[in-house]
Nucleic acid binder design. Sequence first.
DNA 1: CTGAAAGCGCTAACAT
DNA 2: ATGTTAGCGCTTTCAG
Lengths: 340, 340
Amino acid sequence: MRQVTIYDIAKEANVSISTVSRVLNDTAPVKGSTRAKIEELIQKYNFQPNAMARGLLKNETGIIGVIVPDLTNPFFPEVLAGVEHEAMQSGHTFLLSNTIGDYAKESEYLSIMREKRVDGIIFMGGRINLKHCEEHLAQELVQCASVIPTVLVNGGLRGTDLIRVATDESAGTALAVQHLIDLGHTEIGFIGGEIHMTTTSNKLRVFRKTLKDKGQKIREEWLLPDSFSIDSGKNQMLKLLAMKERPTAVFCVNDYTAIGAIKAATEAGLTIPDDMSVVGFDDIPLAHHFIPELTTVSQQAHELGKTAVKVLKAMMNKEKVKKLTSLEPQLIIRQSSRRK
Amino acid sequence: MRQVTIYDIAKEANVSISTVSRVLNDTAPVKGSTRAKIEELIQKYNFQPNAMARGLLKNETGIIGVIVPDLTNPFFPEVLAGVEHEAMQSGHTFLLSNTIGDYAKESEYLSIMREKRVDGIIFMGGRINLKHCEEHLAQELVQCASVIPTVLVNGGLRGTDLIRVATDESAGTALAVQHLIDLGHTEIGFIGGEIHMTTTSNKLRVFRKTLKDKGQKIREEWLLPDSFSIDSGKNQMLKLLAMKERPTAVFCVNDYTAIGAIKAATEAGLTIPDDMSVVGFDDIPLAHHFIPELTTVSQQAHELGKTAVKVLKAMMNKEKVKKLTSLEPQLIIRQSSRRK
DNA sequence: CTGAAAGCGCTAACAT
DNA sequence: ATGTTAGCGCTTTCAG
């Protein structure tokens, strides 16, 4: 069961291990006949050089560490697919960890990744989405980034200058809210998100600003952050429906809450979009398969993943990179919104 | 930027590297004062032992390689979450690869995983779902499994005795079809899947058998395998709707095709389940959020992932394991099916 | 074109 | 309780 090593090959070929290494890496000329013999042996034993030994020497692993908060939220697999695509171009693989928003797990994984000497880290979710991140959590990440190239995706750490890649959520929110306004809606609600997270507070800020700029007044009771799940969307919509005055449209912080909202409304007997317009955010694959198809803002998840890896690779090559690489979101108009 | 090593710590603490190693691994008694000093230094420099060096010596990596065919199909992230959960218990991380059903990519990743000396491999999708797998693809996997503990999830390789973990799809299919029959349906269609894949041909076989056992006749024109996507479900439903005689219920090979089927039917003006019952397979998270909520068969994806890792760990410990560990699927009755 | 030897960072005997 | 030493499997000078 012990794997074949370069020594085994060398011995059987009657050459030194250096020669075997040379044909393996094509790093110096080797006589045709010996090369042939060695290659034959490699074939025969299905020899694969030990990446740990090589990595120890070259001080690189070919592994990118990826930290995501929630694999079961389809947005992240989408990003991962982009990461994978781009990583594969350069022969990198990735070590994945799912932190389910648990800061201790984040720390643990960060530590494991350092031990494993991953070539770079892509960090999503958790602490980098907090409005106020505890100092020691922030420091840990800064520490880590000082020794391993690290990029933060769709998040950041105030007061640090860690490299970021993010979709411009503010622009996306403006797009969505403006869309609703353009459709003639003047009574608009806000559903989902957690108020202590930057993504939510940003969206809420832009939501307010966009309405105010158009001279619309904000109805505080229609602002219903809570969390990011489908159930959360449902619950908040239920609250809205229970009010005597309801908005004619709602902006949801993500597609999950939008789906929940639509579901609750539908179950309550409303028809979306006839009775109420709903727009989501993210454009998860399901958005255009849901009934009704969801009007939403595309974060270009796949592109986001690819971009993150590109930036990371640049960092690994010690190239200079921008502090923030920003992706433009796009409004995707489908069926869940319509003229008032 | 060079990482701190055990030598650096040893030198600064005025001890030998062995002593440092001892406190690191708690492998032998060390005097309190020296231990304290060393620990302080470790803290100070945030020293993390190099996993490659350690792995080279111990001949293990703490990494499990996971090969999945399609990350964007929510079934797999669900399995992965289970894998992760179980792997973490024993301090394992996982290297992920997405093969999008490309056999060449599978080979490539298999090879990378061997180079990286992962402790075990979990293989899903692709070649192990083929009714007729090309010999060299099969051999490659057998080869690989002979040197690295490997478990095949929801698939197998005829003629080999590779270890498998799988949900009992036949039982699941019988459950679903029987459910439809119990509801009084006598005209049942079959949608989705690829006929050259074992999963599909198994489902189709059981579908036929269950109907036949109940004395129902099979309408060949209502058997519409195609592929696994939402669009495929849509297209096949469209075909069904275009026929002059339609079934009153359909069994779909997975939730994606079921969603597509429902969508097409809804757009065509039918109401599900009033006008037609639809049952899916997998129970992806979305199944109970879709409108109408999907009646489906749960594969217990999370459990599947956990079980795969458990079996893998047993193999890594050289314990004896069953050739096939089978999970019982469960019928989940929701809104998309009803009495005829 | 090829071999010898050093060394990547660590663990595990073996000494002391 | 601690130090010395021999590797783990490979790449890379440095000599021939």
